[in-house]
Design a protein around this nucleic acid. Sequence first.
DNA 1: CGGGCACCAGTCCTATGCGA
DNA 2: TCGCATAGGACTGGTGCCCG
Length: 270
Amino acid sequence: PNYEENRGWFHPTVLNKLVVLKGLIWEEELKVRDTLALAFFSILRDCSSLPMRKPYTYIADNVKPKPEDIVERDVLKIYLEKSKKLTAGRVAYEEQCTELMREQGISPQEFNQWLVVKKADARHLSEEISSTVDCVVTSPPYMGVTDNAGAHRLWYLWHDFGSTLQEDKMLEIGPRWKRKKQNLEQEYIEDMSKSLQQIVAVLKDGGYLCLIIGEPQRAKADILQEIVSLARKRLDLDVCRTYRRTIHKKWFAHPTGGVSVEHIAVFQRS
DNA sequence: CGGGCACCAGTCCTATGCGA
DNA sequence: TCGCATAGGACTGGTGCCCG
């Protein structure tokens, strides 16, 4: 881990415990390592000295605790709770997979060929999978709402994900840190346009795209209309249905901004 | 059954950097 | 030095769940 930077976020005792914990997890056999590693990453925020009562977008900005605010946390307790939940989730998933294999009468080897996980920028998808996909379901970033890289800033201190936080931050579509930029909307629509072009390219003829789009109240333009007209005019997509749902602000009531409306749009490649 | 507290695709304000 | 644009920091407050 990056000790120098981590000392600004974690109590020394917490830091030592996390180092030992990570060592133990990474020695585990592959079958369980990923689940436990996910638990490890997801407890970093709670083990840090950041105040507990903060919205998650808050850590998107660089708010390192002051030295006098560094506090100790019960690493083992937090880890055990999290890993228990995630392991239960994994077991339930495995049971569903087993059931599916039995229903379909296929072997685990065949089943594994159904599932491929790849990491890629939606604006530059692989040509290998061109015209092979039946359906794409995606919830792209809402414009100017969240810094997804920054919200995981602590993860980058513990693992090399192949790119730096700064690099990933610059690649994000419509991030929170650009929320005051005058051409935010233009940039967002351009990036969404690139992504949609790539999605259309991987879809089979007649394949479907389901898009979930948030409508930030501060947005000047009608984001859904922009996307729909883009899909109609410049891409080979027909609009099948659009649903509109209002977000009930039961957790967080604000008189002005926020995301109050979400659209679910279903397109078909013509 | 009621008080406290975690939760939240939050907002608002100001320091900073840069060009004229 | 001023004005503008942006990055970063400080902070709200209602709802439901949990626990005594």
